[in-house]
Design a protein around this nucleic acid. Structure first.
Lengths: 184, 184, 184, 184
DNA sequence: AATGAATGAGCCTTCATTCAT
DNA sequence: CATGAATGAAGGCTCATTCAT
């Protein structure tokens, strides 16, 4: 297991971030102490400061490196996907929902923030763009009836996200069927 | 200005709660100090302890005395309201949205709470009951097409609430029109 | 029960001192709060300050007004008491011991004082004077053998006081018999 | 000055206990603040909490680690010591008195303790056992006249202790001569 | 005479952060 | 790289004391 110096450094950094994410999600950023994080990582508090400038820097690193905006951006419907719109949309939303599940602790971090931390806004607008773009495409193609795609995007996004956060995930197929009955 | 002792006590208590609500919503419960609250109220920290046992007791008082569950319960559509469903629904959602505006700080408090505090769940389920009940009624009456009223209720509720919380309120008429196009 | 103003004042003052003595003896001066004393007296803290300048002033008043130095001074053997010295001495020490019992709370107060409060020294030296004086008298009269009366006084006084304080009172007749066997 | 980490930790701990003992004895446990102790040790208050859980924990550590019961137990007269009883007894009491001098602050702590703390009782009873045992031995050997050895032990112990505590140490030879004139 | 609202100082304790080793 | 001793700045809370009513 001979690890080079720099491998070790990378590994330790990840380990600390993992510990921080777990602890922050569990106790909240304010409720967790640096000592808590260190203990969860099996090191001493001092070591954290070799890797991060401050506790707040850890939060920000978590938000930017572990944020799922990149992965959200990867999510997209194939252009000219031959499948019906509702099918593609359902898949899209389910992927999104799965993203939220995979990053449950981060969601908590987002919501627990006193004043909504900036990354949240980016996340939301990217989600709107993703869904809204797809809907507009299909309306243009004449597959979906003309409708307020912006409002629809916000509706779908909000509904999936909030219900996941509340621990009462919604039936996505039912949601899609509700907005686009008998369509696509 | 002629206030009796007991009037003064009641008034001061309310004032402290107001200050606490503002400060907590602004900085979060953990982020706010007792001193912050006291300063916002123009008194010294010690005084808070004549009215509340602890900082946490303030939060709980706020949640129980200032929660808007009672007001949410008062919201209801008249039975057999002659107006079209979409009109009544729009009014209902707008009232709800207004409630959120009136209690913006409390909303922040709710969301900032790690997960612990129970009142949020009660609020949500009451909202679902309110909207879902109305929808089912109108479906039974044959006014609205048959649809998954539970999912619809959760969708409407979530969409209004989240967008209000994010500071990007939704156009409720558009939302209703989206779910029930050309109906009611 | 019509009490004149000044009677009422005197009565209240005594009542407050009683309450203070009880509470101080129970919790210690530092451990007891002004509120504790007020509650024990059935009044509000503010009132105490009409009668005493400060909490410390209460302690001092207690020490000077309730101290048993005056009563200790009253204690004395009749000059030329015809009874044997050991009998008179035993009676003297028993009176002293009884005094300690009567003022148990004050004893606690004395001992609990960080640096011995002044009155204690006065008490001790008065006790020495009382006992030593009697012994010297009887030695002069040839009734007791010549001995170090000052040391004897300190011995008798210390033994009675400490053992009373420790809750293990000594048998005074035995004590006297020990120092003056077969004498007086 | 080259102190290893663990040596330093032990040393610091001792230093803090020394400081605490001095300060507590001077101002009393309640009267002394954690800041006082820290200042006396030349450190910041926070450091105390790396070594002790609380202020009260410091007191308890002092009582258990610095109590002189062990040293009191080591004190004993040689069996069959050929020297006269009064000589041995004098030496014994002087050792005891010296013990009190060496632990003057602890004595203060003992006395200042409301009544609660148990160690005092153990100390006293051990002292009685020590002195009483020796006296009984010499009475059995026919060297001392028959007398109430228990009362004598309590008398000697109380006299030495109280007078030392009051800052007016007694002449031990005179004390012994008083109880056992012309004997041993 | 008595109350109790209000203050200000300070207490015990916690914790993010630094730094010598 | 890693430790853990040490610091400094609060933070929540208590309490003796004052004063308008």
């Amino acid at each position: 297991m001979a690890r080079t110096r720099s491998e070790q450094a990378v590994w330790r950094r990840e380990q600390l971030l993992n510990a921080a994410l777990t602890v922050f999600a569990d106790k909240g950023v304010d409720g967790a102490t640096v000592k808590d994080v260190a203990q969860a990582a099996g090191v001493t508090p001092g070591l954290l400061y070799r890797y991060f400038d401050s506790k707040e820097a850890m939060v920000e690193t978590l938000l930017s490196e572990r944020g799922f905006l990149p992965r959200l951006r990867e999510l997209r419907a194939e252009p000219n996907d031959p499948r019906p719109a509702t099918e593609v949309l359902t898949e899209l939303l389910e992927s999104f929902d799965r993203l939220l599940v995979d990053h449950a602790e981060l969601m908590a971090l987002f919501f627990s923030a006193g004043q909504a931390r900036a990354p949240l806004a980016a996340l939301v607008s990217e989600g709107h763009r993703l869904i809204g773009g797809f809907l507009a495409e299909r309306v243009d193609a004449g597959e979906l009836r003309a409708h307020d795609t912006a409002t629809a995007a916000r509706t779908l996004f909000a509904t999936v996200a909030v219900n996941r956060r509340l621990g009462t995930p919604i039936d996505i197929a039912a949601l899609v069927g509700l907005l686009f009955p008998g369509e696509g």
